[in-house]
Simulated scan of single mutants.
Amino acid sequence: MMTRREGLFLAGALSVAAHGRAGNAATAMAPTVQTPVAFTPPPGSCDCHTHVFPDPARFPFWSGRAYTPPIATADHLLALQKAMGLDRVVIVQPSVYGTDNSATLDGMRQLGPKRARGVAVIGADTTPQVLDSMHAAGIRGIRVNLETGGVTDPAAAGRILDDALARIQGRPWHLQVYARLPLVAALQERLSALPMPVVFDHFAGAQAAQGVEQPGFAAVLGLVKAGRAYVKISGAYRASSEAPDYPAVAPLARALVAANPERIVWGTDWPHPDSATLAGRKPTDIAPPMPVDDGRVLNLLAEWVPDEAARRAILVDNPARLYDF
């Protein structure tokens, strides 16, 4: 449970972001733990999906990005961890940096190897030597973001996956995929045969309003049940607009856990960047973060997974196995 001191620490850290040297780039930041965590996460609990967006003067954004997030540093992430009673975190390379993983690696370095692991995005010019250095720094997988890239054709997606697989072949890493359910279903056989774990972001792209019978969700459940894929029950606001408790997301979460609790991990998606394309907002304009109460979202996990042993697997054991803590 978040103490008053930790709550003040989090609010203060985020206030620094709003008034620090980055200026207007961080004015949208606000405390994201508004509801105290109602249970005690077990030691070693991990938030498996976060990002960091440090000072762009030091870590410039990619010119081809679709949006520009507010500042969210490793210090702010550490404050979030302490406020929520979490010991470990996975920093995922966001699309706004392209294949330059410097900001992600710096965030991992600041938090240290006992707390942080990472997931990178690589390109054709990423050498084996760079991959070796990433592994030494704590990278344990690469992200293939088909959704943000607008890839919906199974043949094109298959070529991208094959290329990614070839680049990390022989490494003890995983392939993290963000894609729509119909695409996952079309690639189910190929994904099932991969020689490394597959991890799906954000409920595997399922939309809560369409329920557990929506096309493609059965393919995800099949991969999870067979132990061929992990799913992050993260970013509930991406699956449903029914904030703050996202009631229609609960059946998705419970179905995934029932399929195989040893293949489910949890994450906040902090700091909740709004990557949507909006009329009148340019990619270089600061996009305010989504208004998410991270304390309340962690409390939802206890409702979705009331069994303490299963919850421990999701928060501690599965991330330790997947990310090599």
Rank of each mutant, 00 (worst) to 15 (best):
P154A: 00
P215N: 10
V257G: 08
S102M: 01
G12F: 03
A209G: 00
P273E: 02
P197L: 03
E147R: 15
A30N: 05
T126Y: 13
R109L: 15
R254S: 06
A218R: 10
C46Q: 12
M2Y: 01
G85I: 00
I139T: 12
A30T: 13
D55F: 01
M134G: 05
N101Y: 06
A13G: 14
T284A: 11
R281C: 07
P41M: 00
D47K: 10
D100M: 14
R281G: 06
L187E: 02
G138V: 14
P195H: 10
H135Y: 02
W266L: 04
V305E: 01
T3A: 05
G222N: 12
C48F: 06
S241P: 10
R281H: 12
Q93D: 09
R180C: 04
A226L: 02
G118A: 06
A279M: 03
R159C: 02
N318H: 11
G112R: 09
L278V: 05
A120K: 11
L322R: 12
P291I: 07
E213C: 03
I286K: 03
T73C: 01
A11E: 08
V37T: 15
K225W: 02
A103L: 06
G64C: 04
A72M: 01
V37N: 08
I233M: 15
P69D: 00
V231I: 03
A166S: 15
T32D: 14
W270P: 11
I142Q: 01
N318G: 10
T126D: 13
N260H: 10
S45V: 05
S15N: 02
A226C: 05
T50G: 08
A229G: 01
E242S: 12
T99E: 12
A239C: 15
P273T: 08
E6W: 07
A208V: 14
P283K: 09
M2A: 13
D269M: 08
L105H: 02
P215E: 15
P251G: 08
I264G: 06
T27S: 12
Q169A: 06
R312S: 07
A136V: 08
I142C: 00
L223P: 04
G295W: 13
P319Y: 11
A276E: 06
P42Q: 09
P195D: 14
D162E: 15
D245S: 03
V231Y: 02
R238E: 01
S192K: 12
F61W: 06
R88W: 04
R109Y: 09
D201S: 07
E147V: 04
G123V: 00
I122D: 03
H272Y: 15
M2F: 00
S45H: 09
L161H: 10
A164W: 04
R143L: 03
W62Y: 07
